[in-house]
Amino acid sequence: MEKKTIVLGVIGSDCHAVGNKILDYSLSDAGFNVVNIGVLSPQEDFINAAVETNADAILVSSLYGHGEIDCRGMREKCEEAGLKDILLYVGGNIVVGKQEWADVHQRFKEMGFDRVYPPGTSVETSIHDLKEDLYK
């Protein structure tokens, strides 16, 4: 089975690095080729890394609550860059304040994200979903 390439990073002005490192190690251990662009990353860095590495998926992390703002238009920018079929995952504390998760989930799905994870989602869940989505 060929190794799939995942671009991983923390979007926007978010500098939460610990979870990013945990995801990097866990995804690598699960057999993925991880391209970790780190923290404080704009959408363009994710997209450029995905184009340069011919990535299969982009995993966006956000913990500071502004993920919804930071992620707007990302699917469209991916398509403009020739990444029409790339998987887009997002997770963490992606909105400000207490909001109904069903509403948050729906908004991100409408923004073009394939998988949307609430705070506290296990790494194993993401790994399972990546394998399910990438090795169909």
Rank of each mutant, 00 (worst) to 15 (best):
S13C: 10
S13I: 05
C15V: 12
C15D: 13
C15K: 08
H16E: 03
A17V: 12
A17K: 15
A17Y: 11
V18W: 13
V18C: 02
G19T: 12
G19V: 14
G19P: 02
G19L: 04
N20I: 08
N20H: 02
N20P: 01
I22D: 00
L23M: 15
L23V: 12
L23W: 10
D24M: 10
S26D: 06
S28E: 07
S28W: 00
S28Q: 08
D29V: 01
D29W: 13
A30I: 01
G31C: 04
G31A: 04
F32M: 02
F32K: 02
F32I: 00
F32L: 06
F32A: 03
N33K: 11
V34P: 03
V35S: 01
V35Q: 03
V35R: 06
N36A: 00
N36S: 04
I37P: 04
I37R: 05
I37G: 04
G38H: 04
V39R: 04
V39W: 04
L40Q: 13
L40G: 10
L40N: 11
S41K: 14
P42R: 14
P42F: 07
Q43A: 11
Q43G: 07
Q43W: 09
E44C: 06
E44S: 11
D45Y: 00
F46M: 08
I47W: 02
N48A: 08
N48M: 07
N48E: 10
A49Q: 02
A49E: 03
A49P: 01
A50H: 02
A50N: 10
A50M: 10
A50S: 09
V51D: 01
E52I: 00
T53L: 07
T53K: 13
T53R: 13
T53V: 10
A55H: 02
D56N: 15
D56L: 08
A57E: 05
A57H: 06
A57T: 07
A57P: 02
I58H: 06
L59M: 10
V60E: 07
V60C: 14
V60K: 06
V60Q: 10
S61L: 14
S61N: 09
L63D: 08
Y64H: 11
Y64V: 08
Y64M: 14
Y64R: 09
H66N: 14
G67P: 01
E68M: 15
E68R: 14
I69E: 15
I69M: 14
I69S: 12
I69V: 15
I69T: 15
D70R: 00
C71V: 07
C71L: 09
R72H: 10
G73H: 07
R75S: 05
E76A: 15
E76Y: 09
